[in-house]
């Protein structure tokens, strides 16, 4: 056709193919959505054109109820998300290193951790919000969501350290502290990153859910729950789309960092 021949060896051909398939996939999605919206015919499922118009308006002007633009809501959610993450990182990583290192601490903390782990992070939301404030509560929910995958991966990473690596360090003159910082920590880093990768996905779901319960100061979850009570369904859909894109970006970022480091260390 038109004398064009697809060449698997050609980088640009491969990229073009990928983009075409992606575009086709998204177009199919929009098409199916449109048809379904017409068939089902409820205001709760608006057609794509309405959602598109709502999106332009929300990013440019914002909604009248909160007076915030979509950018502001995004920033509010991201800020809480990062706060929860920073808190989880600061607690889970050192704790995981210690628990992995000390058999006593492992045995001591295991029953408590196993007891707390099955509780869905969002189930804590009412408690956290009441015990702290509407702003800090959701951050704590994210903290719980990220904490467990990060902690368990860190512990696992410490246990997976090759004894010959720590032995090598000792015979090269490393003191206990140096063995910890120069061998155990870098050995565990890929596992910590993997914990972050999983934690980011969970944490992002937590923040939206928590914001639905904590109606203050904007945020995507708050925006969605407010607009749905007002039956502004196109607005709700814009909120859903933004959650997805931000989720892809945040987890994608860790994923990218993880791959970069794994490649440097020769891990598959």
């Amino acid at each position: 056709m038109f004398g064009f021949k697809y060449d698997t060896e050609n980088k640009w051909h491969r990229l073009g193919r990928l983009l075409l398939i992606m575009a086709a996939s998204l177009l199919t999605f929009v098409y199916v959505w449109w048809i379904l919206a017409i068939i089902i015919n409820t205001p709760a499922i608006p057609t794509p054109d309405l959602v598109w118009a709502a999106m332009i308006k929300l990013f440019n002007e914002g909604d009248i109820q909160t007076g915030l633009s979509m950018w502001d809501h995004m920033a509010a959610s991201l800020k809480r998300f990062l706060g929860g993450f920073a808190l989880a990182f600061g607690v889970a990583v050192p704790l995981g290193l210690l628990i992995g290192y000390s058999r006593f601490l492992d045995e001591f903390s295991r029953p408590v951790l196993e007891f707390l782990k099955p509780i869905a992070p969002i189930a804590w939301a009412p408690v956290f919000i009441f015990a702290t404030t509407l702003t800090i509560g959701p951050i704590l929910v994210v903290f719980v969501g990220i904490f467990f995958p990060l902690l368990y991966n860190t512990i696992f990473g410490v246990k997976k350290i090759e004894p010959s690596l720590t032995d090598a360090a000792k015979t090269l003159g490393a003191k206990e502290r140096q063995v910890f910082y120069k061998v155990m920590l870098p050995c565990t880093t890929p596992y910590i990153m993997n914990g972050m990768r999983i934690g980011f996905g969970i944490g992002w779901m937590c923040i939206v859910a928590a914001e639905m319960i904590a109606p203050l100061g904007g945020g995507l979850g708050y925006f969605i729950s407010l607009q749905s009570t007002l039956s502004n369904w196109p607005y709700v859909f814009v909120g859903l789309g933004v959650i997805s894109v931000l989720g892809i970006l945040t987890t994608g970022l860790v994923d990218y960092a993880y791959r970069l480091m794994a490649k440097r260390m020769g891990i598959e």
Partner: peptide, 15 residues
């Protein structure tokens, strides 16, 4: 460090 060791599995630091 006055007694160096060489290991069968090399035990090099991959990072």
């Amino acid at each position: 460090s006055d007694r160096g060791m060489v290991f069968q599995d090399f035990a090099l630091f991959p990072w």
